[in-house]
């Protein structure tokens, strides 16, 4: 018998398999491992951001600033590497620290001033996006050899398939996050916080530290996603990753994480990101459909999943009564 808490994740995985199968039947050339790997290549940054977002949502919060932090990261990286001539070995650690610090600051404000995460991270979103334009209002193209080699290097797999370095980074992040979520105190405290903050406090758990760390982690993930995004786009621009926070939230929810917090799996988010990728791929194979169909399908899926979660929790209530 399948444990009830795994139902959403299984549904997500089954949906992914179904969509991939449907695509394979309909379009020649769709059914190939490389198409699947391309999903990862094209969505590595989304995956990294969504992992950080999963922690935030599991803790009962939300982080709207992630897309803007990505843009700011690309902007700072491009400006320092291209215009100031700093070495990437300095720039990349620096932007990661800046992203984490940005998240830490938002977390601290959320906790100590008891302000809704929605508002604080909304402010963070505007702030980070605005700061991009302080650096430049134009695209800064990067032609530094390190960045171009990161963008172009293909890691060969047996059978002629390949992935990019970004995919490796994203998969390492996913694996590390699974460990973090299930085998460390920080991870378990995050779940406890999302289950009931007042209980967590009365159980003597470090609520303040956990909450702030969750946003710090999300900030770090955003900055890392920003670095990966820089590899992908080879430029810094203030309009990069507009609305990406919503894609990340959608991926997390489609992956079975409850928006009310306390319940969710990193693996679910992984499938959630891939589902978004499959939809995009199907639409590009179709050729004539507008890319906005991606949004329509994701919108419908979100609705479907939220209703599914509602039904599952309602059934749980019924069974207990």
């Amino acid at each position: 018998m399948l444990k009830r808490q795994y139902i959403p994740i299984v549904v997500t995985a089954a949906l992914l398999a179904f969509m991939f199968a449907a695509g394979s039947f309909r379009y020649t050339g769709f059914f190939s491992l490389q198409v699947l790997l391309n999903l990862l290549i094209d969505n590595a940054f989304l995956l990294i951001v969504a992992v950080g977002m999963t922690f935030v949502i599991v803790s009962g919060g939300i982080d709207l600033s992630v897309g803007s932090v990505i843009a700011l990261t690309t902007m700072i990286s491009a400006s320092l590497v291209q215009q100031q001539g700093w070495p990437p070995a300095v720039v990349i650690p620096l932007v990661l620290v800046l992203g984490a610090a940005f998240g830490w600051l938002m977390g601290a404000i959320i906790h100590y001033f008891k302000i809704q995460p929605f508002i604080v991270t909304l402010a963070g979103m505007f702030l980070a996006r605005g700061l991009c334009y302080v650096i430049s209002i134009n695209t800064i193209t990067i032609d530094h050899p390190f960045y171009t080699s990161m963008a172009q290097t293909k890691i060969k797999l047996p059978g002629g398939f390949f992935i990019s370095i970004s995919v490796v980074i994203a998969l390492v992040v996913v694996a590390a996050a699974i460990y973090l979520a299930h085998y460390t105190r920080f991870g378990r405290n995050t779940y406890a916080l999302g289950g009931s903050e007042s209980s967590a406090l009365l159980m003597g758990l470090p609520v303040a530290r956990t909450k702030i760390l969750v946003y710090t982690f999300s900030g770090l993930c955003s900055a890392l996603a920003g670095v990966v995004f820089t590899f992908y786009m080879l430029s810094g621009y203030g309009l990069h990753a507009v609305g990406l926070e919503l894609d990340a939230i959608a991926a997390v929810v489609i992956g079975g994480t409850l928006l009310t917090g306390g319940v969710g799996y990193i693996l679910g988010t992984f499938f959630g990101v891939l589902i978004q990728g499959v939809i995009q791929t199907i639409i590009s194979f179709e050729g004539t459909l507008s890319s906005w169909w991606t949004k329509i399908v994701i919108g419908l899926l979100l609705l479907l999943f939220i209703v599914l979660q509602r039904l599952l929790s309602a059934r749980r209530q019924m069974q207990k009564a």
């Binding site: 299930h182 378990r188 405290n189 779940y191 406890a192 009931s196 209980s199 009365l202």
Partner: peptide, 29 residues
């Protein structure tokens, strides 16, 4: 122990008993 149980309903029974003092080795629960 309060009337409204102050535990986390989403965690397992074992975790609710031990959280904050889980048995660990090198930080791994």
């Amino acid at each position: 122990v309060y009337q409204e149980v102050n535990l986390c309903p989403n965690l397992t029974v074992a975790e609710n008993i031990f959280i904050g003092r889980e048995p660990r080795r090198f930080g791994r629960i």
